[in-house]
Design a protein around this nucleic acid. Structure first.
Lengths: 104, 104
DNA sequence: ACATTATATCTAATATTCGCGATATGTCAA
DNA sequence: TTGACATATCGCGAATATTAGATATAATGT
């Protein structure tokens, strides 16, 4: 867990919002995965387009942001057909919360 | 509590270390306030010079860093004669810990 | 095979941060 | 009141971040 990389990733209004929005995906985004015939478990993941719509920034920027958050260990992604679904990496977030509770 | 400003302030190895060092000032820094005749309560504060020595960076940079950390609400400062003593602002740090425990 | 759609990557202009030396300010001691 | 010391501020070039348009890749449907 690279704390510096994590704090840099969180040092931006939009990126911090993405993390917060993804805490309650069904509340903050439209239903996901309606395109699929068979039922797939998206684990609360949200596709890039939905995040882009919510954030109101360009596609390339949101893609870059999601990559930064993933590289920092804050998000996980899974590709399903044409779509990539991003969800929170609760493991890292719990470790971070732990860090603040004890080290800081 | 401006979270973005806080995360920016913590997005630097030296600045994050300063916050950690100041959790246990007597362990990480030489005894403070030896210059004073009468006993003054420094509340665990450490002077800029000691922080500069520990961090191994220039005086102007450490002064700037301490200012950033203070503006973000993470540090408090108190001037005593020629020296300025910096200590943690536990109120903000507790609020931040709370944020991670609940919002994130 | 080809057009369409979703996402990722490349490129580049602009903005911000980093970290230092130089200089200013404030404080004390002689 | 002058000199010495601690800290703060200024100014700057270098490095890095921001953000978007253009383009590439990957998957799907016809």
């Amino acid at each position: 867990m690279d704390k510096i990389e994590i704090f840099k990733a969180l040092s931006n209004e939009t990126r911090l919002s993405i993390i917060e929005w993804l805490k309650e995906p069904e509340k903050n985004f439209p239903p996901q995965g309606g395109h699929f015939d068979d039922v797939v478990d998206l684990k609360g993941g949200v596709c890039v387009g939905s995040i882009r719509d919510k954030a109101g920034i360009s596609q390339s920027t949101v893609s870059h942001y999601l990559d930064m958050l993933q590289k920092a260990g804050l998000l996980l992604s899974e590709r399903r057909g044409k779509w990539t679904y991003y969800r929170r990496n609760e493991e890292t977030l719990a470790a971070l919360s732990d860090y603040f509770g004890h080290e800081i």
